[in-house]
Design a protein around this nucleic acid. Structure first.
Lengths: 200, 200
DNA sequence: AAAATAGATATATTTTTGTGTATCAATGAT
DNA sequence: ATCATTGATACACAAAAATATATCTATTTT
């Protein structure tokens, strides 16, 4: 496997992580066996173009051919529209990542519920303000609540749990917003998936 | 075949033309049968990633995955660093294309010769000044001379023919340069391959 | 008109992806 | 401590790409 194809595989893997998807979750969405995704990410196979395009599509990536000489400019553009990187306490980073994963995981399940959309907004704000987070404990509690959502279908109990989680998130968010210079200067992202802080 | 993969195939085909390569010529460079290249360009096969990367490499293209949301900005950058488009007489366009193809075809054969590099510079200038070209006849003559180069190896005869062609090109170039606003505002390209004018 | 070139297509064979299913080790959650 | 999840790997089978070769038609060149 050459550098070029390894790059592609790396990019797919990273994009999957940023969306908080496991290989199995992605597998179901894209209709490719988990075993195959594993092989692809490890460069064990020379996948077909259609496979790559399918994966890219569900990961909100676009596969394009650009003139080699424009590559630096292109990369610059891509980088500049990526979220800012901030150094944050590792345990906070870890919990934030789980929050993101959990939220994404239930996004399909509760897609129609306004309550869930509101919750996502709160979480987005919290992630933007990550630099203000000094203690990971509130995030852990938030994750606890998020996990509980999994068990529910769309019934009264789910709504109750959802509302409680949203309130919890809002409270934490407000607390963070109190500190000055709270919001990072981040371009809005359509999906709830901000950059990880563990590779910079 | 979906739009995405069709796009890729289109891009490959266009890049090949811009380099003045036939399917067979490309086939030899990249080590893939001509029949396969034909199928690929027509979307008759779902090629493997390694195949795509190989083709892209020899066509001086880069295959990359970019976040969907950055696509407009990326495309803008790629477009802005592309050569300007000018409407030119069709017969002139046709001959210019042949000049480009011929020059590229012999580039490898005479790579070491300074005379050939000089000739390429002349041709580059001529192509930049295409808007000034009113008659395709001089280009046809130029193509005649270029064709003759094919028969030669690196011997005295080749040198003579080469020098004659270069002089011919220089004469035409100087004639064009006489007219005002001669040079188009085109970014320099590393290889001798300017944009075609027949698809805008 | 004849010869050369370009691109599309055909066939038989080999190589490899992709699928389906299952297992396994490592890590994480209860 | 136990259970669940994640990612890596195995194996048989089906499907498709890739190869090597050849032919065919339409242009272009001589």
């Amino acid at each position: 496997m050459d550098y070029q194809t390894a790059q592609i595989a790396e990019r797919l893997k990273k994009a999957r992580h940023e969306k908080g998807l496991s290989q199995r979750a992605l597998s179901e969405r894209v209709g490719i066996p988990q075993s195959q995704i594993s092989k692809i990410e490890n460069g064990a196979v020379d996948m077909r173009l259609s496979t790559l395009v399918e994966l890219a599509r569900t990961l909100e990536l676009e596969l394009i051919l650009v003139p080699r000489k424009t590559l630096p400019a292109v990369q610059s553009v891509v980088r500049s529209s990526a979220p800012r990187r901030v150094s944050v306490d590792p345990s906070v980073v870890k919990e934030l990542k789980r929050v993101r994963e959990n939220a994404n995981r239930f996004a399909a399940q509760f897609a129609k519920l306004n309550e869930f959309a509101r919750l996502q907004n709160e979480l987005r704000d919290i992630e933007r303000m990550r630099a203000q987070i000094l203690d990971s404990a509130p995030l852990r509690e938030l994750n606890q609540s998020l996990k509980k959502l999994k068990a529910f279908q769309e019934n009264d109990e789910a709504m109750k749990a959802l509302r409680k989680t949203a309130e919890q998130a809002a409270a934490f968010r407000n607390q963070l917003a109190h500190s000055a210079a709270a919001f990072e200067n981040v371009l809005p992202k359509s999906a709830y998936s901000l950059e990880e802080g563990d590779d910079g």
